[in-house]
Design a protein around this nucleic acid. Sequence first.
DNA 1: TTTTCTCTTCAGACAAACTTAAGAATTTAA
DNA 2: TTAAATTCTTAAGTTTGTCTGAAGAGAAAA
Lengths: 225, 225
Amino acid sequence: MRILLIEDSDALRKSLTVGLHKLGYAIDSAATGTEGLNMALMGEYDILILDLMLPLLDGMEILKVIRKQNSEMRVLILSAKSEPEDKVSGILAGADDYLAKPFSFDELTVRLINLMRRGKLLYRNDEIVVNDFSLDLNSKVMRYKGMELELTPNEFKIIECIFINKARVITPERLSESIAGNYDSISKNAIEVHLSCVRRKVRELGGELPVKNKRGFGYIVTEDS
Amino acid sequence: MRILLIEDSDALRKSLTVGLHKLGYAIDSAATGTEGLNMALMGEYDILILDLMLPLLDGMEILKVIRKQNSEMRVLILSAKSEPEDKVSGILAGADDYLAKPFSFDELTVRLINLMRRGKLLYRNDEIVVNDFSLDLNSKVMRYKGMELELTPNEFKIIECIFINKARVITPERLSESIAGNYDSISKNAIEVHLSCVRRKVRELGGELPVKNKRGFGYIVTEDS
DNA sequence: TTTTCTCTTCAGACAAACTTAAGAATTTAA
DNA sequence: TTAAATTCTTAAGTTTGTCTGAAGAGAAAA
């Protein structure tokens, strides 16, 4: 069960992270909306705990973007406002549950457990499979027909992003973001080099990386049929 | 690991008892609430699997009494789906986890394993074994082929965290947390120094620490195959 | 064919991780 | 409380592995 927490208050973010981690959840956190959105779009989270009041990029905006991309992620809204209009619009925008601050840790865990029950998400394995390839997100290992491939961090992130978004074309800009984050960036050429390197590693095992380039657009998985 | 099961359905009680026994757990069971409560209060159980819907003495009542007596026992609630939502939420405050009927045996075992990991339960009797190495969590002793290694507290915590998470890559940040706690932290370099020190100690006994660094990711156990 | 985009290779720049050593800080003993 | 011992952290040097820009080859569009 992978959880992403987007919360700008340092104190709350830290205490929730520690608490949920102790309960055995794999939890990542982001302090800003932009960073959080990026992480969320990488797509590997089951549940998103989202503070509505964020500086710069509003929680509601994040929610909208996410809902367009990934309909599987459960979203739990945190908000300091307790006005009912907020609640309504939040849930309308695609959130699954709502929790008004201040709340106790127990209240939060109850909501989380309910969210998990709802979606049969609990036993989703941390693995992405494409044809003969699999990405183990825990051990950061890529496998081809069971054989292990050693990928560097950037190579892994690129493949991860492309694999997660199986059906979509991923632009180099998006890949750059997913590697470097919002404020730094990586050249298109660098991405090409990384991909080339992964392709070579796969070839050495007698396979072919199921990623093709759509000229002018970006990269997409080629699925066996 | 001692488990107590309180469940009035004969079929379910028997099948769970047999199944869990086969997995190596010491499991006792009770068919009624009163009998179950007595056993829970008398015996020393680590985990209680408690059906909410019991004739005569309700599961919720049992939980309340137990929570006053023994705060260490982990409680896993079983409940029919027809239970009102609020009742479930209410009882979750005192329970550690919740499983809605019908459930598969696999689902149950996953919950149990999570319960054991949680808190200090894992540390009670157990030791962690990796290849020729073992960590005795009670005496804080590391052994290599039976030979004792003296580790300092921080060294032990680092190895413990890495060993517990056998299959995952553990980031230095995570290690730092597990050493220093929530709000303090430890430099990456400090961790490297500790690890280096442990490696040296192991080398002096003619072995090699089964921990490798995945550059850019973190540390992970290397298992013999 | 020409143009444009993408792939690959390679080497230098760069960064992460390891080790050693020494000074702080903490714990234990007196 | 001070003194001694242990443990922790910082710092610096070394090793190792990764990243990226450049440039030419290759492929697709115009």
